[in-house]
Design a protein around this nucleic acid. Structure first.
Lengths: 222, 222
DNA sequence: GCATTATTGATAGTAATACTATTACTTTTG
DNA sequence: CAAAAGTAATAGTATTACTATCAATAATGC
């Protein structure tokens, strides 16, 4: 284990017992990501996860209240990790415009191999975020959960990048709308590219999605 | 009943028995929309719907294979209805740019009172589409369901508006990406405005979302 | 007007899901 | 080495997501 896990923080209300603190907890994180990716969030159950990690489901319930909270945890972890990537890539870069394109690149590019933490497979987690993360906040309890700060890491990313935008164009009216549109939009486009391609414009050249959203942002601020 | 229901068509594979053809079927449509809006799609069950319309759940299963198919049906109906609105608003308008802004307006503006069909409450249906429709295609069976044409009406709307874009800028690289980004984006922004407002830029003036996405599209084609 | 057929109602039943509870065993750690 | 913490094993409940059967009723064809 390295020191990255102190940098990546999630709201303590998201779990019953901190999953990073024990072997079982880490196994839960590792295997749940694989299993959700494999069978989808709807079909995913703590029972099946228990079989996969050879532990009774009741043990998993000691870490997470239910599968919804596990998804919120994973999503929150992802955004905290993403913010860290953005911070790394933008500190000491003087040009705000360069910082902006760098941040957009991180938000829209395909996930890369990364072994920062042993109990999280970032590539699979990125896949889950693309196809399942909307389910973490499209629920009847959003308002309550938002109040409790469940989506704080997501908001933090949006506001951080919005602030760069405002450095470039101080009186821009829609910084948060633009950034959240880019984030959600790039997820949708990646999903569509894999499953409903006629809703996109896939080409043979790479990074179409990144190019599109970078252009969109730059068009807006010029 | 008026003749609009012949204009609004959905794929026949979406239902077991055509719900518009009988009183019970129409009650199912009407009440399911109310109930999904009220308790959310996760908590919605055919059992609860049966209680609401005073029919056994087994009768509902004769119309729809399961609640997922009901959601796909409602979503498909919504896009067919939306396409009809776009057609109405753009026929005989010579200027492609005017047709584009009109179409974007329809796609991004708040839902309006409309009593075109007695068994569908369009305002409530719009609310459901905003908060639940992603769940109709974010499943493990997307690929299969896409092949069967379950999402045809949605694609049709996107392609229709993309074509207007291409009239204005014939070699534009990303027409579908831009339009699907606007559609999904405006839904997200409406949802965020109600539930996670700090991800948006809400102001006192009206039509912020429409303005934002219109500006986005026009920025791209100039 | 009556038989056939389609449609709905009523009831029952099953496997899986989403949990909660209890007790016993095994590690840590102080 | 004892106390505490963590985990396993098992059992049990209410709800969900269906399927099946049969009776009652309404619509339609002749």
């Amino acid at each position: 284990m390295n020191n990255l896990n102190i940098l990546i923080e999630v709201n303590q209300d998201l779990y019953c017992k901190e999953p990073t603190s024990s072997e079982l907890g880490q196994k839960i994180l590792l295997k749940s990501i694989e299993l959700i990716d494999e069978i989808g969030f709807e079909a995913f159950t703590f029972k099946k996860l228990g079989v996969a990690i050879n532990s009774p489901e009741s043990s998993i319930y000691r870490y997470f209240k239910n599968k919804h909270m596990l998804l919120v945890y994973l999503t929150s972890w992802y955004w905290s990790w993403t913010e860290y990537q953005i911070v790394l890539a933008t500190t000491n870069v003087a040009s705000a415009k360069k910082r902006l394109t760098k941040a957009i690149s991180i938000l829209t590019r395909p996930a890369m191999e990364n072994t920062s933490v042993p109990y999280i497979n970032e590539v699979l987690l990125s896949k889950i975020i693309i196809s399942e993360s909307i389910k973490s906040y499209h629920t009847k309890n959003v308002d309550e959960e938002n109040k409790k700060g469940y989506f704080a890491t997501y908001k933090s990313v949006v506001h951080r990048v919005s602030d760069i935008l405002l450095e470039i164009k101080p009186h821009f009216e829609f910084p948060n709308m633009l950034i959240s549109t880019i984030i959600e939009g790039s997820h949708h486009q990646k999903y569509f590219a894999s499953h409903i391609p006629s809703l996109t414009d896939i080409t043979t050249k790479k990074n179409t999605i990144e190019q599109f959203y970078t252009k969109m942002a730059l068009n807006f601020i010029k």
